[in-house]
């Protein structure tokens, strides 16, 4: 990367210095942002994680105490980790498969393509709080239309968000409703598959499976990789939908005099990001909250590194 400097004549050196100054000028907003909103808080998070800090008394160093507390004593940690892993696996897998499916469908649709695209895309745009409250109502066992219709059809009526074994599947359902982003990505990728390859395949008498296996899949696999890794990272951050669904379904509004702890029902909707909120902003144990933050950071950065290695195109120069 580095050009040998010694050989450069003074005029060229001056030019290069000027170029560097221009670059720094263009980059300056981000350089400041990087230092103040990324580097500093990360270092501070590490520092706080080794202290006892309640927001009133100055932080006091406590060594690894917070780590021990979070990993072995704090009641919701492992439950949240298990839930998050469950959600990552289920959501990413189902969303990817469903996204490819919808993408393929939309490329095959000839009449009214605009209508279908809009219908599939629209739910993705619904603000998460609104979409979650809406879903919690639709799936509400006592008053919602879904169980009402299922009952009419003589089908079982699950408790959805109020039943610990159905609450996470309900969240997955909500995430499938918002498939729009993946649909568009896969749609574009599928349209970029060279048609000649399909023609060649059908000349060879390939059936649908062969066409998928030897033409479609190899062509879109980088996009699948991208969708999976970004999906994992997004699901690691899963927060708003889980906390709102729990709150709406619990009937505990978190109003004055009613403490709402996330996770309803039976801790089945705890996710790791909610732990940071619970420990930091409900229990005001900033040190232990930072421990959870750091663990989340390590996992998220691991995934990011994987993405950057496998999709070096993300950083391609031209």
């Amino acid at each position: 990367m580095r050009t040998p400097r010694a050989a450069a004549p003074p005029a060229l050196r001056r030019k290069r210095r000027r170029e560097l100054a221009t670059t720094a000028g263009f980059l300056s907003p981000w350089l400041i942002g990087f230092a103040v909103f990324f580097a500093y808080p990360l270092i501070a998070t590490v520092y706080f994680s080794f202290t006892h800090y309640d927001g009133f008394n100055a932080p006091t160093p406590v060594g690894l105490k917070n780590y021990v507390y979070v990993l072995t004593e704090y009641p919701f940690f492992w439950q949240a980790v298990r839930n998050t892993v469950w959600l990552v696996v289920a959501m990413v897998a189902l969303r990817t498969v469903f996204g490819i499916g919808i993408g393929m469908l939309i490329t095959k649709i000839k009449s009214g393509a605009g209508f279908f695209r809009t219908a599939f895309y629209l739910p993705y745009l619904a603000p998460p709080v609104a979409a979650t409250i809406g879903f919690a109502f639709l799936l509400n066992p006592g008053t919602g239309p879904v169980d009402h219709i299922l009952g009419r059809l003589g089908l079982p009526q699950p408790g959805w968000f109020t039943d610990p074994s159905w609450s996470k599947p309900s969240l997955v359902l909500l995430s499938l409703w918002g498939i729009g982003d993946l649909m568009v990505i896969f749609m574009a990728a599928l349209l970029d598959v060279p048609a000649e390859q399909y023609e060649a395949a059908s000349l060879d008498g390939a059936n649908w499976w062969h066409r998928w296996r030897y033409v479609t899949y190899p062509n879109i696999s980088p996009i699948i990789m991208f969708a999976v890794v970004t999906g994992v990272i997004q699901t690691l951050q899963y927060y708003t939908q889980a906390i709102i669904a729990g709150q709406v379904a619990s009937g505990i509004a978190g109003n004055a005099g009613q403490q709402f702890e996330p996770g309803y029902p039976n801790g089945s909707t705890w996710t790791v990001p909610q732990l940071v909120y619970n420990i930091g902003f409900q229990r005001f144990d900033y040190g232990s909250a930072c421990v959870v933050s750091l663990l989340l950071f390590v996992v998220a950065m691991g995934c990011t590194a994987l993405l950057m290695r496998r999709r070096s195109g993300l950083m391609a120069e031209d």
């Binding site: 990367m1 580095r2 170029e19 560097l20 221009t22 670059t23 263009f26 980059l27 981000w30 990087f34 909103f37 990324f38 500093y40 808080p41 990360l42 501070a44 998070t45 706080f48 927001g55 970004t230 990272i233 690691l236 951050q237 927060y239 790791v272 990001p273 940071v276 909120y277 930091g280 902003f281 900033y286 909250a289 930072c290 959870v292 933050s293 750091l294 989340l296 950071f297 998220a300 950065m301 995934c303 990011t304 993405l307 950057m308 993300l314 950083m315």
Partner: peptide, 30 residues
């Protein structure tokens, strides 16, 4: 622009993009 460290800068941008907001919320809030 061509400048030393631009690959690193790009890596950092992607890292920031992927960073869950909850990771740095405590120091930022304080």
């Amino acid at each position: 622009f061509r400048f030393p460290g631009r690959r690193l800068a790009m890596m950092l941008v992607i890292s920031m993009m992927m960073l869950p907001p909850q990771v740095i919320i405590i120091p930022m809030y304080l």
